[in-house]
Amino acid sequence: MSESYVGISWNRQKKIYDAIIGVVVLIYLALFIGVGSLLHPTSTIETLLIRGFGTAAILSLHIVLIIGPLCRLSPKFLPLLYNRRHLGVATFFLGLVHGGIATFQFHALGELNPFVSILINNTRFDSVPDFPFQILGLAALIILFLMAVTSHDFWLKNLTAPVWKTLHTLVYIAYGLLIAHVALGVLQAETNPILAVSLGIGMLLVVGLHLTAAFKESKTDTEEPNGKGDYVEVCSVDEIPENRACIATVSGERVAVFKYDGKVSAISNVCQHQNGPLGEGEIIDGCITCPWHGFQYEPETGASPPPFTEKVPTFNVKITGGKVLVDKTPNKAGTRVEPVSIDG
């Protein structure tokens, strides 16, 4: 199932997800500011707000970034992915408040425009200890802003999935900028190594999970089946669970071969919504259902059921001696291909 555009298509899972985000953020800020003012009675409220929102934003961004690889390693984490974009938008707002208060605190009420102050007051780009770390934070915030405003499916549809996906891949640039913002900023003024150690562990977690997930997926991509002629053997029929798929790389593209009702069909593995892995989905109500956000496609046509309009390429399939063979050349998205009967 795909959907028409409304502000947010609320459902129970999204409400629970957002409620958890809201409650955790509120408790975190209350804890940081409340306990902070007890532990550090001479600290100013502005400092606690800047640090509270800043640390909340960086923690939130780490969680956003580990959800993707966790889901690639195990589908049991998919509920965390389903509404991840709301966590991403929350991360942007936490960063915005952090940056807003810091901009007012350190750059407003002076002779210069606050943004001019950020850009020109410190130009020691050649110095690690004195690098103007604020500019890095501003650049990261601009990226997070672009991602937040284009997070809605309206933009996904209009920018097209590849462009949207590329734009949202900029989160890794934003992450790098923010790590540098923290390392060249507050860590330069602090002496307790636990802060740097925490940041290092966070980075290792993000990088490590991404590498592990990439290694796992690389096996699918490198084990490209060989075959003479137009068709290549991808798997045996028996390997495919009922209403599920096997995934194989054919001519550099991932193909999902589904088995259902005594038949086999093959479509592109890439969901039109957010490029989710359709081959990790399931056939529900006769439609291939994407594991990420539940978008659906008919296995014979690669098209979403009316009135929805998403389409993915289909592939011609043969079964020979219990083996599934897939045509190397995809059909145009939405092209009907008669499913092949397992019994011949």
Binding site: L31, F32, V35, H40, L59, L80, I194, L195, S198
Partner: peptide, 26 residues
């Protein structure tokens, strides 16, 4: 996913306290 989420939330709060304690004295 539920215990993992709970663990993640506890970790977030623990890290918040660590960040507070780890700050240079004011």
């Amino acid at each position: 996913v539920r215990p993992f989420t709970a663990l993640l939330i506890v970790l977030v709060f623990v890290l918040g306290i660590i960040f507070l304690i780890g700050q240079r004295p004011f």
